[in-house]
Simulated assay, not measured.
Amino acid sequence: MKYAAKAQTPLGKVLLASDGSYLTGVWFAGQKYYAAGIGNDIIYNQHIPIFTQTVSWLQRYFSGENPKIDELLLAPAGSTFRQIVWRILCDIPYGHVRTYGDIAAEVAAYNGIKTMSAQAIGGAVGHNPISIIIPCHRVVGAKGSLTGYAGGIEKKQRLLAAEGVDVRTLSALVR
C-alpha cells in the first residue's frame, strides 16, 4: 500500500509519501521529479502516523529548531549509489554546506576509488525524494555557487537562510 498526504510549509505545499510505516517522499508542489516513483495506486490519508510525525518535524524545522533526521523513519527508494549519497547528505550539519566535490571525494573514498564525478553526485542529490529532511539544499557548487535545487534556487536560498547560512556569500548560479 502507498499513502500520500499534503502539508503546508512556509515555502509552499509539499506532498508526503509513505509505505504506511516509513516516509518515502517529500516534494514541493511543482518540484522537478515531483512524486517520482509513487505511482498511481495511492491512498490519501493525513492520519498515517509517519505523516503526523513528519508534519510536526517540518513545523519545528520551520520555526527555527533543528530536529534530528533520525526522529523519522525514512526509506527513500534509489540505487545503492544514491543511497550512499543520501546518507552523506544526512551528515551535513544544520546551518552548514558542503560542495558536490566534497561529497564526490567522500563517495570515492567509501568505494575505495581515486575519484568520483561531482556531476554524478549532482544527479543523486537532485533525485533525493525526501526534500528538506534529507538536506540536499545544503549542497553547493564549487566556490559556494548556488547550483541546482529540484525545488528551485529561491527555496534553497530560503532554507539555507533559515538555518543561519549567510546566503549573501554564496553566488546564485542556476544550472
Rank of each mutant, 00 (worst) to 15 (best):
residue 2 K to C: 03
residue 6 K to S: 09
residue 7 A to N: 06
residue 8 Q to F: 12
residue 10 P to I: 07
residue 11 L to E: 14
residue 14 V to D: 04
residue 14 V to H: 08
residue 15 L to N: 13
residue 17 A to K: 04
residue 17 A to S: 12
residue 18 S to Q: 07
residue 19 D to W: 04
residue 21 S to P: 04
residue 21 S to W: 09
residue 21 S to D: 14
residue 22 Y to G: 01
residue 34 Y to R: 11
residue 34 Y to W: 14
residue 35 A to K: 13
residue 35 A to Y: 04
residue 35 A to L: 03
residue 36 A to Y: 14
residue 37 G to R: 06
residue 39 G to Y: 08
residue 41 D to E: 12
residue 45 N to G: 08
residue 47 H to G: 05
residue 48 I to H: 03
residue 51 F to C: 09
residue 53 Q to T: 03
residue 54 T to W: 09
residue 55 V to E: 04
residue 56 S to E: 13
residue 56 S to Y: 11
residue 58 L to E: 03
residue 64 G to Y: 05
residue 66 N to K: 12
residue 68 K to L: 07
residue 68 K to V: 01
residue 69 I to G: 02
residue 69 I to H: 11
residue 70 D to L: 04
residue 70 D to C: 02
residue 72 L to M: 03
residue 73 L to F: 09
residue 77 A to S: 04
residue 77 A to P: 05
residue 78 G to E: 00
residue 79 S to A: 05
residue 80 T to Q: 05
residue 82 R to Q: 05
residue 83 Q to R: 07
residue 84 I to C: 02
residue 86 W to V: 01
residue 86 W to H: 01
residue 88 I to K: 12
residue 89 L to K: 00
residue 91 D to W: 00
residue 91 D to V: 00
residue 92 I to E: 02
residue 94 Y to Q: 04
residue 95 G to A: 07
residue 95 G to T: 07
residue 97 V to I: 13
residue 100 Y to P: 02
residue 100 Y to C: 01
residue 101 G to E: 15
residue 101 G to L: 15
residue 105 A to I: 05
residue 106 E to Q: 10
residue 107 V to A: 06
residue 107 V to T: 06
residue 108 A to L: 13
residue 108 A to H: 13
residue 108 A to V: 11
residue 109 A to V: 02
residue 110 Y to A: 07
residue 110 Y to G: 00
residue 110 Y to W: 09
residue 112 G to W: 05
residue 113 I to T: 11
residue 114 K to F: 10
residue 115 T to P: 03
residue 117 S to Y: 11
residue 117 S to N: 15
residue 117 S to K: 11
residue 123 G to Y: 13
residue 124 A to Y: 05
residue 124 A to S: 06
residue 125 V to R: 02
residue 125 V to S: 02
residue 127 H to D: 05
residue 127 H to V: 00
residue 130 I to M: 03
residue 131 S to V: 02
residue 131 S to G: 04
residue 131 S to A: 07
residue 133 I to F: 08
residue 133 I to W: 08
residue 134 I to D: 04
residue 134 I to K: 01
residue 135 P to N: 00
residue 136 C to T: 00
residue 137 H to S: 08
residue 138 R to P: 00
residue 139 V to A: 01
residue 140 V to H: 08
residue 141 G to Y: 09
residue 143 K to E: 13
residue 144 G to R: 12
residue 146 L to P: 10
residue 147 T to L: 13
residue 148 G to R: 14
residue 148 G to N: 14
residue 151 G to Y: 07
residue 152 G to S: 06
residue 152 G to A: 08
residue 153 I to N: 10
residue 155 K to T: 13
residue 157 Q to W: 10
residue 158 R to H: 10
residue 159 L to G: 06
residue 160 L to K: 12
residue 163 E to R: 07
residue 164 G to Y: 11
residue 167 V to F: 15
residue 169 T to F: 15
residue 169 T to G: 15
residue 169 T to A: 15
residue 170 L to Y: 14
residue 170 L to R: 13
residue 173 L to G: 13
residue 173 L to M: 14
residue 174 V to I: 09
